[in-house]
């Protein structure tokens, strides 16, 4: 019974930022940043010498790609922390980052593919960057699948944490293997032209805007995970109470002390 009362005394789920004044600040600044990024991408930044207007897609592409890698870095970090401290909050952060990371990786692959079709003339090429991103996508889709298939909550957290760490460690290995392998099958490489100051500024603003967006997403997903965790716990307690009541109904109920 002390178990139940302890859980009851725990604070309720905090308001997600969409509803409080903090939410107002976050979302207003997010909109302003995104608007600024859009303006700079489409109007402020000059056309590029070789690619013309197509390069404008790269601002968003670079931003989501960097955030995908960042999100997976957070997964690894949170996984290590979970195995060390065994605090479920770290696991919630890991799963939130993993899901957001998969989303951003999907965006990276999609935008890169669209750009590549236009500039290189192909939807896909086995460039180390592309290949590594694709492998990363596979690894973290597997991470999410693994979580789905483990029922025991403690086992799920432990096993997922291990896989989350292994996945990130594998990234540099994948990178080098693909880079060496490519020397066997040469492919077209990216044309590198000089960046003007306007381009750099545009890139910076876009990256900042998307980063804010990414952190908002991770936070929301984290809150969702915490809430469902709490729901799961309450469900267990409700079941416990049912058991106790059912048993207590039979006769001399051992009343819980402090």
């Amino acid at each position: 019974m002390s178990l139940a009362s302890r859980a009851l005394r725990r604070r309720t789920v905090r308001q997600p930022p969409l509803f409080g004044w903090r939410g107002l600040v976050v979302y207003t600044s997010l909109l302003i940043l995104m608007g600024a990024a859009l303006y700079m991408i489409f109007i402020y930044a000059p056309a590029e010498r070789v690619q013309g207007d197509a390069h404008r897609l790269l601002y968003g592409h670079v931003a989501v790609a960097w955030l995908a890698f960042l999100a997976f870095g957070i997964v690894a970090l949170a996984s290590v922390m979970y195995l060390w401290r065994r605090n479920p909050r770290w696991d919630s952060l890991a799963v939130a980052s993993a899901e957001v990371g998969v989303l951003f990786t999907t965006l990276t692959l999609a935008s890169g593919s669209i750009w590549g079709r236009h500039v290189w003339g192909v939807w896909w090429t086995w460039d180390p960057r592309l290949t590594t991103t694709l492998v990363l996508w596979f690894i973290y889709v597997a991470y999410l699948a693994l979580r789905m298939y483990i029922d025991n909550v403690d086992t799920r957290r432990r096993v997922a944490a291990i896989f989350g760490i292994v996945g990130v460690v594998d990234v540099p290995i994948v990178w080098y293997s693909v880079e060496w392998w490519r020397s066997l099958h040469p492919v077209q490489s990216v044309t590198r032209a000089g960046l003007t100051l306007e381009m750099v500024l545009t890139l910076v603003v876009t990256v900042v805007a998307f980063t804010v967006f990414c952190f908002v997403l991770i936070r929301q997903r984290y809150l969702l995970e915490r809430a469902s965790d709490e729901g799961e716990g309450l469900r267990d307690i409700v079941r416990n109470r049912h058991d106790e009541l059912r048993l207590a109904g039979a006769g001399s109920a051992p009343e819980a002390g402090e």
Partner: peptide, 25 residues
Amino acid sequence: VFLFIGYAVIWVLLFGYLVFVTGRI
């Protein structure tokens, strides 16, 4: 057209995810 498609994909997915998660919360 390419640019439009590219950014439309990004925005739709990001906002869709945000709305979905917030609703679930």
